[in-house]
């Protein structure tokens, strides 16, 4: 065959092959993406997408932060007790930029009275790679990341597109089990420690969030859930200083003087990093008490608009069983 025609033919064949590979790969993405919070990896994935499916203007209290937050705060538990409608929008390795993006995205759909940021992630390296919603990027590598789902595939997996779903637990990812973690007596015993300064780019992000909240008439507050794994007095003092300079209240649940009664030895699923179900219960109740005594948030129990919330609250244990890691 004439050389030019040979090269043309080869290019065409290569192009067709690449198309075939692309199509097969895309179809694999569709098959292997989890379709439900009950699927392998589904809970984590859908909890970061779930805010898109919440009814507009129904959330009064928003929590943002890293994996500590979705392990440690249960909005439905809070709703059961006081009717406050809250939502957890957190992701692992949350960065300053992620916080800004998540707050922006949520404020577009909601008009909360109070926005709470967990401070543990203030000390993470603030880069753009780990930014907004790494979980959404996971779709690109779904055939590899979720390949173990082959064990649980159903017929519908082959023709259902993965779309954001409402999360009945409102962003809470319960952790079952307890590790034999032994809480150190030396934890947070150094209240005069030199404050660890929060990185400038993170401060900038926090100030941006403060502006956003102001423009939406939402109050802002910092907290830090119990996490002896990564927290200490220096960090606590650093955030205290920053919060003071920004005029933002800061509630550190690691601080022995805050009044939290938590059994540190049995409340974590790992070595003092993430709270388990029992720990989350205690932390949530404590936050609830603090918030109800410092802010006035409506009690929505029984309201027509919040019928679905009442349903979920009634079957809370079932949803926790289904979603627990």
């Amino acid at each position: 065959m004439h050389k030019a025609r040979l090269i043309k033919r080869r290019l065409l064949i290569s192009f067709l092959i690449i198309c075939a590979i692309a199509m097969v790969y895309l179809y694999l993405v569709v098959i292997f993406m989890p379709k439900d919070t009950g699927d392998l990896g589904g809970a984590k994935y859908y909890s970061t997408q779930a805010y898109k499916k919440e009814q507009k203007n129904s959330i009064d209290l928003l929590f943002f932060g890293n994996s500590d937050v979705y392990a440690g705060v249960s909005p439905i538990l809070m709703y059961q007790n006081s009717g406050i409608s809250s939502f957890v929008c957190a992701s692992p390795k949350e960065t300053g930029y992620s916080l800004v993006n998540y707050v922006k995205a949520n404020l577009k759909r909601q008009n909360p009275k109070l926005v709470v940021l967990d401070a543990d992630c203030f000390y993470y390296k603030n880069d753009h790679y780990h930014g907004f919603n790494v979980q959404s990027k996971v779709m690109a590598i779904a055939p590899f990341f979720y390949h173990a789902r082959w064990k649980e595939l159903t017929i519908s997996d082959f023709f259902t597109l993965p779309t954001a779903k409402a999360d009945p637990l409102k962003g809470y990812l319960p952790n079952a089990g307890t590790s034999n973690y032994k809480h150190k007596d030396s934890f947070m015993q150094n209240p005069n420690a030199q404050p660890l300064e929060v990185e400038k780019s993170v401060v900038k992000c926090l100030k941006t969030i403060q502006e956003l909240c102001k423009s939406e008439n939402a109050q802002l507050m910092f907290m830090c859930l119990p996490t002896p794994f990564s927290w200490n007095n220096s960090k606590s003092n650093g955030v205290k200083l920053l919060a003071g300079s920004m005029g933002v209240p800061f509630l550190d649940l690691n601080d022995p003087s805050c009044g939290l009664e938590l059994d540190f030895n049995h409340s974590f699923k790992d070595s003092g990093n993430h709270l388990n179900i029992q720990g989350a219960e205690v932390a949530t109740r404590f936050l609830e008490n603090y918030i109800t005594s410092h802010y006035s948030l409506a009690d929505h129990r029984g309201e027509e608009k919040y019928k679905s919330w009442d349903e979920i609250a009634k079957n809370y244990d079932y949803y926790v069983q289904r979603a627990k890691q």
Binding site: A20, V24, L28, G41, H147, A148
Partner: peptide, 22 residues
């Protein structure tokens, strides 16, 4: 031939013993 190669690659990706749990 192309189909065979793609099928093999898919088998490896799906059924490989890697990642979480392995």
């Amino acid at each position: 031939k192309v189909a065979f190669l793609i099928a093999m690659a898919v088998m490896i990706i799906v059924f490989g013993a890697y990642g979480e749990g392995y």
